[in-house]
Amino acid sequence: MPPGGSGAGGRHGIGADGAKRALPDTDTVKAAIETVLAEAAARGRQPEPAARENTDLRRTLALYEEAIRQLALENDALRRGSTVVPLPTRSVPASP
Score class of each variant (00 low, 15 high):
28 T>Y: 04
55 T>W: 05
34 E>M: 03
83 T>Q: 09
45 R>T: 03
90 R>D: 08
84 V>M: 10
6 S>F: 06
36 V>P: 03
61 L>M: 05
52 R>M: 02
68 I>A: 15
2 P>N: 13
67 A>V: 05
24 P>I: 00
26 T>C: 06
10 G>I: 02
96 P>K: 09
90 R>S: 13
58 R>H: 10
85 V>C: 00
7 G>F: 02
21 R>C: 00
35 T>Q: 14
10 G>E: 13
10 G>M: 10
63 L>R: 13
95 S>Y: 07
23 L>R: 12
35 T>C: 08
48 E>K: 08
56 D>P: 00
64 Y>V: 06
47 P>A: 09
53 E>H: 08
8 A>M: 12
77 A>T: 06
11 R>S: 15
36 V>T: 14
74 E>G: 03
80 R>V: 11
91 S>A: 14
87 L>N: 06
74 E>D: 11
19 A>G: 07
53 E>R: 14
12 H>L: 13
3 P>V: 00
56 D>Y: 00
19 A>C: 13
48 E>C: 02
95 S>C: 01
30 K>I: 14
3 P>I: 03
95 S>P: 07
76 D>P: 00
77 A>G: 05
55 T>V: 09
36 V>A: 12
2 P>W: 14
73 L>E: 07
32 A>S: 09
39 E>K: 07
60 T>L: 12
89 T>L: 05
9 G>R: 04
45 R>F: 05
66 E>D: 14
49 P>F: 07
37 L>D: 13
50 A>Y: 03
3 P>S: 15
27 D>R: 14
73 L>Q: 07
48 E>W: 01
39 E>P: 04
64 Y>S: 04
38 A>N: 12
20 K>P: 10
82 S>H: 10
36 V>N: 02
15 G>L: 12
71 L>C: 07
74 E>W: 11
56 D>S: 07
11 R>K: 15
11 R>H: 10
34 E>R: 07
21 R>P: 01
46 Q>L: 15
52 R>G: 02
50 A>N: 01
65 E>K: 06
43 R>M: 12
86 P>E: 13
36 V>M: 11
9 G>A: 05
55 T>G: 11
72 A>N: 10
82 S>R: 02
10 G>Q: 11
29 V>R: 12
21 R>S: 00
